[in-house]
Design a protein around this nucleic acid. Sequence first.
RNA 1: GCCCCGGUGGUGGAAUUGGUAGACACGCAGGACUUAAAAUCCUGUGACCCGCAACGGUCGUAACGGUUCAACUCCGUUCCGGGGCACCA
Length: 925
Amino acid sequence: MEYSFRNIEKKWQQNWKDNLVYKVENNTSLPKYYVLDMFPYPSGAGLHVGHPLGYIASDIYSRYKRLKGFNVLHPMGYDAFGLPAEQYAIDHGIHPAISTEENINNFRKQLDNIGFCYDWNREVRTSDSSYYKWTQWIFLQLFNAWFDRKKNKAVPISEVVKIFETHGNNNGEVHCPDSVVTFSANEWKLFTEKERMEILMQYRLVYCGYGEVNWCEKLGTVLANDEVINGLSERGSHPVIKKKLRQWYLRITDYADRLLSGLEQVDFSESMKEMQSNWIGKSSGAEINFAVQTTNPAYQKTPLVVYTTRPDTIFGVDFMVVAPEHELLLQIVTDSQKKSVEDYITLVKSRSDRERMAEKKITGVFSGASAIHPFNGKQIPIWISEYVLIGYGTGAIMAVPCGDQRDFLFAKHFAIPITNIFGTQFNNEEANQAKNVLLENSDFINGMTTQIASDLVIEKLAEKKMGNRKVNYKIHDAAFSRQRYWGEPFPIVWKNGTAVALSEDQLPVQLPNMKEILPGLDGEGPLSNLNEWKNFDRGVREVNTMPGYAGSSWYFLRYMDPKNEKEFCNRQISDYWGQVDLYIGGTEHAVGHLLYSRMWTKCLFDLGFIGFDEPYKKLVNQGKIGGDSRIVYRIHGTNQFVSEGLKEKYETDELHVDVNMVNGKELDLKKFKSWKPEFKNASFLLEDGKYLCESRLEKMSKRYFNVVNPDEVVEKYGADTFRMYEMFLGPVEQDKPWDTKGIEGVHRFLKKLWRLFYEDQKGKRWTIEKATEPELKVLHKTIKKVEENTERFSFNTGVSALMICVNELTELKCYKKEILEPLLVLLSPYAPHITEELFHELGNTTTILKTSFPIWDEKYCTEAVKTYPIAINGKTRTEITIPLEADQQQVENIVLQNEKVMKWLDGNQPKKIIYIKNKMINLVV
RNA sequence: GCCCCGGUGGUGGAAUUGGUAGACACGCAGGACUUAAAAUCCUGUGACCCGCAACGGUCGUAACGGUUCAACUCCGUUCCGGGGCACCA
């Protein structure tokens, strides 16, 4: 009886489906465990072998946890809204709903092939109205909420209205956004409804504002950053300009501190936390007001406000730099400098953000105006330069050339004299950015270090009302609208210029069908073309749609209660499932998805809808599987190809060839010739009778012909082999190349396992004989190892432990059910099909999925004796087997009598004998 | 430039807390079975030195240095690769 994986796998997949073995209940007495994969965007390209890596890891862990007695939630769904489907519709005239459906079906088929234990009854699709109804509902909760800085949490917007009614907004009760005027309670009462709504808009967690977007006039659409290349559209190379459009924003900045401190409570990798905290970019320093001296008397009283993280260097300020967009600029510029300033602004405006950022050249213009030093009254020239960005801090800096390298280079370039505040610690060749340097030439802070001096400077500035301590964040509010079709419509109707929220019973706002997706006028999205849909309830619907991250910010909650028509997720159910215990996905979502999702969770927590404020307890980032490309060399201008080793002798062009035509490095010439018509008559220069290709690791991509489709691997070796091989490649978190050749080893392992039960010729081999001590030892050591390795996500060593076990049982000729049955259970998370088959062959009638993980017995895992390495001065010289319970004295006696040891000691007495029980013995001579 | 992660045989990788470096697997070489092939099994396989061989020795985890009885593991410096952030004040 042979291991015929194709029949076995098909049979059990059908059986599991028919018997609903993966159905998960919400109410059991079992402890819960929630394992989640980052759900995929169903692209048209389908899966390659890199995609399922994380899914396999989470699948193994889920199955393992089930065997360990947990009620495991392990769902899957689709992040189904997105740009590619919409673009595909524009290019091919196929509606996104149709292409998305097709892609999902294809994904599903590919996933099913691999034998995952998802509960498909809980599948969610963000583009289903039964799902996005609740995305819209959450939007409304955010719309009707305000972040109370005193409580450091979101509260209903009605609370801020109460405060306005009794105190206005200017008594310290309410944080007042920069764009809102201050008013008293009386003034609030006198405002019109429209005015009140406009003010409230500035306080909401999602709010409307204006923002710049990449606008392509020719395409009539807004483009994402990665659709713009060097200021031109990726499609068609049309010019792209900045355009101000009304946008919705998510007030994520209010959560900056909690998003930062929350990182301390979650089990993410250090680099992941690092990326997130860099993105949040918290820095502390001071805002300092510099009086401006200019010929225009109207602005002499308006201070120039700068942000600095180094207030201690205030006596080293030699010039000021403001961003070209700074609004004070045109007001303070002197007549003589007006022309050159305007020219510079025009130059900067014509440049894309990317160009500005990539610029290494130092440019800038003097404004003609000066600022006054707050302590010594010195006149400081005000410059403009593109290296200061309007979006960060106050859009203006105080430049300290001896303490900041960019300021230093600027000063050198424009020959601005440099004040030295570090004495001999400054060499006039580069800025000294160290923070432990003692200050000199700095008035009242001479001899102090950064921290002390900064505090003192801030204190003095505050006394003079010329500055204050300030914490700054790099993170800015996230744009939450897209001028697109294929996304969630907003539950908003504009009436008389005011955004009015729809009520809950008006949800969902269905995404209307469109025959042809065309952009609207003036950068409005395609929905603006639908007059009938647009005009609603004596107003006009919001025609923007929500961005891709809307649906993915809360999907983990919907899986808990996917069919609920009354709530986004029942509170009792979310209390039961709680946080995602294990989240597996790629690093590419480090700052986008994860931050938004964490924020939404915090909002829902603040508003009392869920009981936890961090969504993901533990995050594991699976590595990428790289493609192992094969490259051939064609002699330039000919149709002759040279083998890799000979390529230096000719002038050649390199071409990628399909990896499926290459065995190891040897090119299959026949396949190659029939690959493309142009190669039909190709000739080859061989080495040792073979044509060898060069191998190169790069991204797995169609363009490099290095894509390996899991369907093909599963067809050839079976799902169990595929699953185990993906794990055997190396640690899940590590990037690694795909090389199909090694898969044979894993496949042989499964065949070897099979042969413990059945011989190819003679048939049944397994027996119900009593197991011997050595056999039990093999089993129990394996249970221990597999358990430990699975617990710490070291699946590659888990596979290896199972291989060792099968090798040893083969050696022992052990075919006993007593040993083999628990082994099957151990293996079942990794290879569910073959183990289910053999489990039934052993006479079981229930599924192996519902058994329990075997428990290892210490007595079989500890040996009575240990073969110790005996090292002399740290170098292993021999091995001696010594009983484990031997004490120091006994060990010394045994060791010193050893022939080898005596030889090495050469008559000397060892200075010291180090004996570490169960580890090693070292003699110091 | 700053931050994070990594660098181990021909290859993927193992070594969980400082305690036998190279588990397991691929590949390769030799052999068995077979008319032959596939499949399977056995043996060897980090480099170098001595030797018929057993055995023995030296070196070896990117490089150099340090701590330690003992370092892939800890510390310092440098090099290389990958990722993130970026004229961020």
